[in-house]
Amino acid sequence: MGKVLKENGVFPTGRRILIVEDNERNLAMTVEMLEVHNHQVVVARNGQEAIEMAKQHKPELILMDIRMPVMDGLEATQRLRAIPEFVNTPIIAMTAKYRC
Results as ranks from 00 to 15, higher is better:
Met1Val: 04
Met1Phe: 07
Met1Ala: 05
Met1Leu: 04
Met1Gly: 05
Gly2Arg: 05
Gly2Ile: 02
Gly2Lys: 06
Lys3Gln: 11
Lys3Cys: 05
Lys3Phe: 11
Val4Thr: 01
Leu5Ser: 09
Leu5Asp: 09
Leu5Arg: 07
Leu5Ile: 12
Lys6Arg: 14
Lys6Met: 12
Lys6His: 05
Lys6Ser: 13
Lys6Pro: 09
Lys6Val: 13
Glu7Asp: 11
Glu7Gln: 12
Glu7His: 08
Glu7Ala: 08
Glu7Phe: 06
Gly9Leu: 00
Gly9Glu: 01
Gly9Met: 00
Val10His: 12
Val10Ser: 12
Val10Ile: 15
Val10Gln: 14
Phe11Cys: 11
Phe11Arg: 14
Phe11Trp: 15
Pro12Met: 03
Pro12Cys: 03
Pro12Ile: 08
Pro12Tyr: 02
Pro12Thr: 08
Thr13His: 14
Thr13Lys: 15
Thr13Arg: 15
Thr13Trp: 09
Thr13Cys: 14
Thr13Val: 15
Thr13Tyr: 11
Gly14Met: 12
Gly14Thr: 14
Gly14Asp: 14
Gly14Trp: 13
Gly14Tyr: 12
Gly14Ala: 11
Gly14Leu: 12
Arg15Ser: 02
Arg15Asp: 00
Arg15His: 01
Arg16Asp: 14
Arg16Met: 09
Arg16Tyr: 09
Arg16His: 13
Arg16Phe: 07
Arg16Gly: 08
Ile17Gln: 04
Ile17Tyr: 03
Ile17Pro: 10
Ile17Asp: 04
Leu18Asn: 15
Leu18Cys: 15
Leu18Val: 15
Ile19Thr: 02
Val20Asn: 14
Val20Lys: 14
Val20Ser: 14
Val20Gly: 13
Val20Glu: 13
Val20Phe: 14
Glu21Cys: 05
Glu21Thr: 04
Glu21Lys: 07
Asp22Glu: 10
Asp22Trp: 06
Asp22Ser: 11
Asp22Gln: 07
Asp22Leu: 05
Asp22Met: 06
Asp22Val: 04
Asp22His: 05
Asn23Ala: 10
Glu24Gly: 06
Glu24Asp: 13
Glu24Thr: 10
Glu24His: 10
Arg25Asp: 13
Arg25Phe: 13
Arg25Trp: 10
Arg25Ala: 09
Asn26Trp: 03
Asn26Ser: 09
Asn26Gln: 07
Asn26Met: 04
Asn26Leu: 04
Asn26Val: 09
Leu27Cys: 10
Leu27Gly: 04
Leu27His: 09
Leu27Tyr: 07
Leu27Ala: 08
Leu27Glu: 14
Ala28Gln: 07
Ala28Lys: 07
Ala28Cys: 00
Ala28Phe: 02
Ala28Ile: 06
Met29Ala: 08
Met29Gly: 01
Met29Leu: 10
Thr30Trp: 01
Thr30Ser: 06
Thr30Tyr: 00
Thr30Cys: 05
Val31Gln: 09
Val31Cys: 07
Val31Phe: 02
Val31Pro: 01
Glu32Pro: 00
Glu32Asp: 02
Glu32His: 00
Glu32Gln: 02
Glu32Phe: 00
Glu32Thr: 00
Met33Lys: 04
Met33Gly: 00
Leu34Gln: 02
Leu34Tyr: 02
Leu34Ala: 02
Leu34Trp: 03
Leu34Ile: 08
Glu35Thr: 11
Glu35Cys: 06
Glu35Gln: 12
Val36Leu: 10
Val36Asp: 07
Val36Pro: 03
Val36Glu: 07
His37Gly: 05
His37Pro: 01
His37Thr: 11
His37Tyr: 15
